[in-house]
Design a protein around this nucleic acid. Structure first.
Length: 284
DNA sequence: CATCATACCTGTTCGC
DNA sequence: TGCGAACAGGTATGAT
């Protein structure tokens, strides 16, 4: 489900709720979420640890506790809910953390995940900088070092569709299917354009639109198309800004042409065949 | 190596 | 209305 803006929204929300609270109990209902570790050591490692900070890298949430990091990827449907009263678990509830604050007031951090794709890793503080899933991530879209020149270098040898390249987390981290379609539409770049053929003008436009769209989506607390919530009943409202994603068959907001949908490396891809026409496009 | 298909899961929507 | 197929904000893995 979530891309960078949604994960960042979750991070900011949870930060306001769980920092300085201590885990005093963990109930696990579906343990396959937890990687490289059995549930007993997961629980014993985390019990009596206090949340000190929450970071985000790409689409990963990194909960910092005393000398240990809980690294979480929400994948398609993972969600955290925070409650001050203990909720009854439903069929999609996989973990419940019971938290205590300084006054010993209890609260609950619940992990729900309909499709069970989400992952959790425990990583020691000393090893967090070499933890492979994080280490191999590419630059963040909002990093000031991400410029047209940077992309020029990055794309130089990539004879692949720009859509595929932008979705590759080892190149740029945090973009997903919604925002890639939106960014390519804004930059008027056909999703099948080979990355290494983009012109300087297109690269400049791409960088500008990427930063604008991601910044705005964070301000809007993410995009709720189907099921994204950053806690129970807390939805984003960036869906009102989408121009192509989910609008196949409707009119392009620029030129009124019917938006087309195709598939690129297995992912549904919506675009305007006129605004995003490939240069020298002789075929299909 | 690079690339592709398949796996991981469940729920919803679409087409006949 | 029913029923299977296709699809869904993602990524790791094994086969080719």
């Amino acid at each position: 489900m979530p891309e960078l803006p949604e994960v960042e929204t979750v991070r900011r929300y949870l930060k306001s709720k769980i920092i300085d609270k201590t885990i005093i109990d963990i109930e696990i209902y579906y343990s396959k979420i937890i990687k490289e570790m059995n549930e007993v050591s997961f629980v014993t490692t985390l019990i009596n640890k206090k949340f000190t900070k929450i970071d985000r890298t790409g689409k990963y949430l990194i909960f910092k506790l005393d000398e240990i990091n809980l690294v979480v990827h929400l994948r398609m449907e993972g969600k955290f809910f925070y409650y001050s009263e203990k909720p009854g678990p439903n069929k999609h509830t996989h973990l419940i953390f019971t938290l205590a604050d300084k006054e010993n007031q209890l609260s609950y951090l619940v992990y729900n995940d309909v499709r069970k794709f989400g992952t959790m890793h425990l990583v020691k503080e000393a090893e967090i900088n070499t933890f492979e899933p994080l280490q191999k991530l590419g630059i963040e879209p909002l990093d000031s070092q991400l410029t047209a020149d940077y992309l020029k270098q990055l794309f130089k040898t990539l004879q692949k569709d720009i859509k595929e390249v932008l979705l590759d987390q080892t190149k740029i981290s945090g973009l997903g299917n919604i925002y890639v379609d939106e960014i390519l539409f804004a930059a008027k770049i056909n999703p099948r354009t080979k990355a290494d053929t983009l012109t300087n003008r297109q690269l400049k436009q791409l960088v500008k639109n990427m930063k604008e769209i991601i910044t705005k989506a964070i301000q809007n607390q993410g995009t709720t198309i189907r099921t994204f919530t950053f806690s129970e009943d807390q939805k984003g409202h960036n869906q009102n800004n989408l121009k192509v994603y989910g609008r196949a068959g409707e009119n392009c907001m620029n030129c009124q042409t019917i938006l087309k949908k195709t598939k690129i490396t297995g992912r549904g891809t919506t675009y305007c065949p006129v605004c995003q026409k490939e240069k020298n496009d002789n075929c299909n």
